[in-house]
Design a protein around this nucleic acid. Structure first.
Length: 476
RNA sequence: GCCCCCAUGGUCUAGCGGUUAGGACACAGCCCUUUCAAGGCUAUAACUCGGGUUCGAGUCCCGAUGGGGGCACCA
């Protein structure tokens, strides 16, 4: 039975790296008809942000990642919030002491220099409390001191483990710190809570970032001390910025929610992120969540870190937008239409722009000309490819205004037919007729739709008004 | 500083001892076309460097270089 988990700490928002970790854990579970669990790791009281919990729930929901067990979905292995499991950690930490794999440490926090004060990290020095006798420990308790519980790392030797993506990793025990398992505030550290919970929640595959690679031996020592079965490890390569730096909110790198607000489709982001560190082994790049579940294979996760490319995401987003059902796209696009645009036929607009939109946030700028004709220069009427000049444009417009004024039906088909007929009757290349009209209607060098499509959208009255403005520009 | 990991075009990647080193993004050009986009085609662009092993290394081994990560009563 595959049981995987996503175990974020509620510190703010969903990073891209977190999203991918959650996604892979979800995909692996679903691929094997397993169970995906959400566990909240809120053991650092100083870092908890109340709203962050909501961000996690929203983020997962938005991404389409659904958990089978979690804080609000009891699967019999709860509670799924670590701050609600304090007695459990204490019990197991004390058990570790009896087993000789941990010890009480009465040193004060400030006894050791802060990491940043240490210019270069010295070799690991063992904590003096390691040697405390039972009696000495009792004496300190009697004085009212509250200790932390530290892991007792074996003196010599080395500890190894097998990682699904990185293979066998081996570290000298001398490199391993006697880390704190239970803090003086009674909360466990990540290092400990993780091991206890993964065991108790029967997690079969631990999926997490590569930053845990070198501390994993410490966790294994814990599993061994308890006599617990060690889970499969799947460490994921890091996601970097394109300049090679680490992705970080502080450096302005967007979170998952930020990207959604920037006009990216959650499914496109999920698709893109899935490809960062994993490859299906063929040339396929477009995946829905269902596709991913079917195609995902943990053996195909790569080892080297990947750079997050906004450009490629943007392209993939365009692919997803184009692949949308027109009705679905219209719905997604609707909230980006300005109030004045709503007076026009927005369904028609949606059909026109769907293949041209890369991000939903492109929509306002792409459509604003429909409401207000932009100020434009008369040179816009000159276009080499369409064989237009200021003179030809003036001729075309003056002839076309009366023609369209009396056209029987006003729709794209009729408009196109009428103008095409006009062009061939006058011996014009079709572009020579269409260009000045499109230009006068949009005031732009490029527009989402051709002359007749824009005319259809704007209606007869506005079309004639804009054509007249264009003609006046040409004649002045 | 010590330890761990990684290394194919600018970016994401395929490759798993014998390939004209494949695809995608981006870029440039052409075609299509009522502008743009989309689509189609073409071009430019890569195995970090040394040593081995082998008849034969992008692929295996060692080293160097470069990059990343870890070394908290943070996760």
């Amino acid at each position: 039975m595959f049981r995987t988990r996503f175990a974020p700490s509620p510190t703010g928002y969903m990073h891209i790296g977190n999203l991918r970790t959650a996604l892979y854990a979800y995909l692996l579970a679903k691929k094997h008809q397993g169970v995906f669990i959400l566990r909240i790791e809120d053991t650092d009281q100083s870092r908890n942000v109340p709203a962050a919990l909501a961000a996690i729930y929203n983020g997962l929901a938005l991404a389409g990642i659904t958990y089978d067990e979690g804080p609000d979905k009891d699967g019999g292995k709860g509670p799924y919030v670590q701050s609600q499991r304090l007695p459990i950690y204490r019990k197991y930490a004390e058990e570790l002491i009896t087993r000789g794999a941990a010890y009480y440490c009465f040193c004060q926090k400030d006894d050791k220099p802060e990491p940043e004060d240490q210019p270069a990290h010295p070799d690991i020095t063992r904590d003096p409390c390691r040697l405390l006798t039972q009696a000495e420990v009792q004496a300190r308790f009697a004085r009212g001191l509250t200790p932390v519980i530290r892991q007792r790392i074996p003196e010599g030797g080395s500890t190894s483990f097998d990682d699904h993506v990185y293979g066998r990793i081996s570290i000298e025990n001398a490199q391993l710190d006697d880390q704190v398992l239970l803090k003086s505030d009674g909360f466990p550290t990540y290092n400990f809570a993780n091991v206890v919970d993964d065991h108790l929640m029967e997690i079969s595959h631990v999926i997490r970032g590569q930053e845990y690679l070198s501390s994993t031996p410490k966790y294994n020592l814990l599993y061994q001390a308890f006599g617990w079965q060690i889970p499969e490890y799947i460490h994921l390569p890091l996601i970097l910025r394109e300049d090679g730096a680490k992705l970080s909110k502080r450096a302005g790198d967007p979170s998952f929610e930020d990207l959604v607000n920037m006009g990216y489709l959650p499914e496109a982001i999920v698709n893109y992120v899935a490809l960062l560190g994993w490859s299906p082994g063929n040339d396929r790049e477009f995946f829905t969540m269902q596709d991913l579940i079917e195609a995902f294979d943990m053996d195909r996760i790569g080892k080297s870190s990947a750079a997050f490319s906004m450009e490629k995401l943007t392209w993939l987003n365009g692919e997803h937008i184009r692949a949308m059902d027109p009705a679905a796209f219209h719905q997604a696009a609707s909230r980006y239409y300005a109030a004045e645009i709503q007076k026009l036929d927005t369904e028609k607009i949606s059909r026109l722009i769907q293949i041209r939109v890369e991000k939903l946030t492109d929509i306002p700028a792409m459509t604003s000309f429909l409401v207000e004709l932009p100020e434009y220069s008369v040179e816009l009427f000159e276009n080499q490819k369409s064989k237009t000049t200021l003179a030809s444009s003036a001729q075309v417009l003056s002839a076309v205004i009366p023609l369209l004024g009396t056209l029987e039906s006003w729709d794209n088909g009729s408009l196109f037919a009428a103008l095409k007929e006009f062009a061939s009757a006058q011996g014009y290349k079709i572009g020579t007729v269409m260009w000045p009209i499109r230009t006068a209607l949009s005031g732009l060098p490029a527009s989402p739709g051709g002359a007749t499509e824009l005319a259809d959208l704007l209606g007869r009255q506005e079309t004639l008004r804009r054509l007249t403005i264009g003609l006046e520009k040409l004649e002045s």
